[in-house]
C-alpha cells in the first residue's frame, strides 16, 4: 500500500468502463447534442483564464528561475524571463547538498518499480476477482475496497521502526519501494475494468482448448487488461514521483528522490530563490514531458474512472 496522499479517481463509486464503448456512447450523445450547447465566446474566454491560471505559477517559477538572485527582490516586477535559467539550473545540478542526478535517477527507479509492481499484482488479483470463481472472493473484494479508505501513511511510526531498525534500510530506496508495491486502488480498478471488458466466453474458449489457468491469464487476461493497466501505471507513476512524506522521513540528502531534493533546496543556508525555482522547473520537466506524451490517456483515465458504469 502506498503511503501517498494520492486521491483515487472516482472509480471507488463508479467503476471504470472499457474505453471503446465509452467513446461510442459519447459520440452518440454528441450526435444528440443541442444547438444551445454551443460554447459562447465567454466560455472560451473563461477556459483561457483558467488555463492561464494553471500555467501562471509555472511561468512565475521560470521567471524567477531565469533571473538572478536580486530579481526576486525588485519591487518592480520584470514580466519577461531573464537569461540565467541555464546557469541557475547548473547551480542546482552542481549543488552537493541536492544530488540532482541521483535524485532524478532515484525518482525514476522508485516510480517505475512501483508502477510495474502495482500493475502486475493488480492485474493478477483483478483478473481473479473479476473472472474466476472461488470461495471467499466476495469478502476479500470488500476488504480490498474497505482498505482504500484507510490512510496508511498514519502507520509511519511502525514503518520507520520496521524499515530502519529491523531491516536496516534507512536511506535505502528499498524502504520507499517496499511499502508501495501493492495498491488496493489498483486491484479495484483492474477488477472493475476486467469484469466489464473481458467476455467470459474468451476465457472459456481458452480453457476448452486445454490452456492452463496461467496460460489463459497470460494470453486472454493480460491483453484485455492492457489499456486499463497502462492508465493505472500512469497514475501510480505520477503519484509515486510526487510522493514526499515517507521518502522525506526515511531518505536523506545523500540519496534523495526529487521532491526530497527539492525540499533541501529551500532550506538552504542562504536562500536564493532564483536557484530554488530553477530547481522546481528542472524537477517538473520530466513529468511535463510525460504529460505531453501521455496526457491524453491521463485525461481519459480520469474520465473513464468517473463515467457511471
Amino acid at each position: 500500500m502506498t503511503a501517498t496522499t494520492e486521491r483515487p479517481t472516482s472509480a471507488v463509486l463508479v467503476p471504470p468502463r472499457p474505453p471503446a464503448p465509452v467513446r461510442r456512447s459519447r459520440a452518440s450523445r454528441r450526435g444528440r447534442a443541442l444547438a444551445s450547447n454551443k460554447p459562447s465566446a465567454l466560455g472560451y474566454a473563461f477556459l483561457v483564464v483558467v488555463i492561464l491560471g494553471s500555467l501562471f505559477p509555472l511561468y512565475w517559477s521560470f521567471l524567477i528561475g531565469s533571473g538572478d538572485s536580486s530579481s526576486i527582490n525588485r519591487q518592480d516586477i520584470d514580466w519577461l524571463p531573464g537569461g540565467n535559467f541555464l546557469s541557475n539550473a547548473a547551480k542546482v545540478i552542481n549543488d552537493p547538498s541536492v544530488n540532482f542526478w541521483r535524485a532524478l535517477a532515484n525518482s525514476l527507479i522508485v516510480s517505475t518499480t512501483v508502477a510495474a509492481s502495482v500493475v502486475t499484482f493488480s492485474t493478477l488479483a483483478g483478473y481473479a476477482f473479476a473472472k474466476l470463481r472461488f470461495r471467499g472472493s466476495k469478502p476479500m473484494l470488500i476488504f480490498v475496497i474497505a482498505t482504500m479508505a484507510v490512510p496508511t501513511q498514519l502507520g509511519i511510526v511502525p514503518l520507520f521502526i520496521a524499515m530502519s531498525q529491523w531491516l536496516g534500510l534507512s536511506g535505502n530506496l528499498l524502504a520507499v519501494i517496499l511499502p508501495a508495491l501493492v495498491s488496493a486502488f489498483g486491484v479495484f480498478w483492474m477488477t472493475q475494468y476486467l469484469s466489464q471488458s473481458l467476455p467470459d466466453e474468451l476465457i472459456e474458449a481458452a480453457r476448452v482448448d486445454g490452456a492452463s489457468m496461467i496460460r489463459t491469464f497470460w494470453h486472454v487476461g493480460v491483453p484485455a487488461a492492457r489499456p486499463a493497466a497502462a492508465m493505472l501505471a500512469l497514475f501510480i507513476f505520477i503519484a509515486t514521483w510526487t510522493n514526499f512524506f515517507w521518502p522525506f522521513i526515511i531518505l536523506d540528502s545523500s540519496n534523495p528522490t526529487l521532491p526530497v531534493a527539492l525540499s533541501l533546496l529551500q532550506s538552504n543556508f542562504f536562500i536564493d530563490y532564483s536557484i530554488v525555482l530553477a530547481g522546481v522547473i528542472l524537477s517538473t520537466i520530466p513529468l511535463l514531458v510525460l504529460f505531453v506524451v501521455a496526457g491524453k490517456q491521463l485525461v481519459s483515465g480520469i474520465m473513464q474512472g468517473a463515467v457511471k458504469g
Binding site: 496522499t5 477556459l47 483558467v50 488555463i51 494553471s54 500555467l55 505559477p57 509555472l58 512565475w60 517559477s61 524567477i64 526576486i72 505520477i238 514521483w241 510526487t242 514526499f244 526529487l258 521532491p259 527539492l262 525540499s263 533546496l265 529551500q266 530563490y273 530554488v276 525555482l277 522546481v280 524537477s283 517538473t284 513529468l287 511535463l288 510525460l290 504529460f291 496526457g295 491524453k296 491521463l298 485525461v299 480520469i302
Partner: peptide, 20 residues
C-alpha cells in the same frame, strides 16, 4: 489537457512556488 497541467507538478514544487 490544459486544465490538468497542474496535476503533474509535485506538491513540494507547488508549495515552493506559492510560498514565494
Amino acid at each position: 489537457m490544459g486544465v490538468l497541467v497542474p496535476y503533474v507538478v509535485a506538491p513540494v514544487a507547488v508549495a515552493l512556488i506559492f510560498s514565494n
